[in-house]
Amino acid sequence: MKYTRKSRNAIGSENDTTFVSRLLGKFNSWRLSFSIDGQAIAKGVIIAVFIVLFSITQTTLLSRLRPFGAVPDLLLPLVVAVAMSEKEKWGAVVGLISAFVIDALGGVTVMLLPLLYVPVGIFCGLLTTYRFRDSIPVAALFTAVTCVLRFFVSFLLALFTVHGATPLQALLDFALPGLYANLIFAVFPHLFVRLAMRPFHKTRAERTEENDRVF
């Protein structure tokens, strides 16, 4: 019996006729302007790993250590980092999934985080695409703004869900410590995402070379 090696085609390429590629072709035909190809799947897997890693870290290690007296939110800066790196659509999807996962693992009963994470993902992505450049100062600015938004959400949640908490207690015991912790720990998701997504993006030298060729 003679075995012959079959040639493999890239997922989503014209010659690819496997079940998965047909499924992806169908998805892409919905005209969501969100095509899924091999690179997108690789990115998705990496980001999914990050979501699991950070949500688990947040609900185990950091919830025990409680730096500054609060559990830092690692998934919000992750959403910002992904949105800046992969633009608004990825930001929206990652925001939705992250909010759902962290709400599920965190065991909260009032789930409001999708209302924060998804807009953050969308706006950070859109602003990076149309207004700002993907740079460290912009990332710091976006993170700071989202942490302040998270501060208000934490304040409101503490005020309405913690029995007997006064506005001052909600501010001093929950919201402010959360703000400090979020600002400090936001560095890690940004760092991880930037390092992991680097292979998928063209370097500055490559971009300059491409521009030179065009002109």
Binding site: L32, L96, L115
Partner: peptide
């Protein structure tokens, strides 16, 4: 105005 945005918005509301 894209279909993607509407889908995400609906999913977000459902998720909440």
């Amino acid at each position: 105005k894209s279909k993607f945005f509407y889908i995400v918005a609906v999913l977000t509301l459902i998720a909440v």
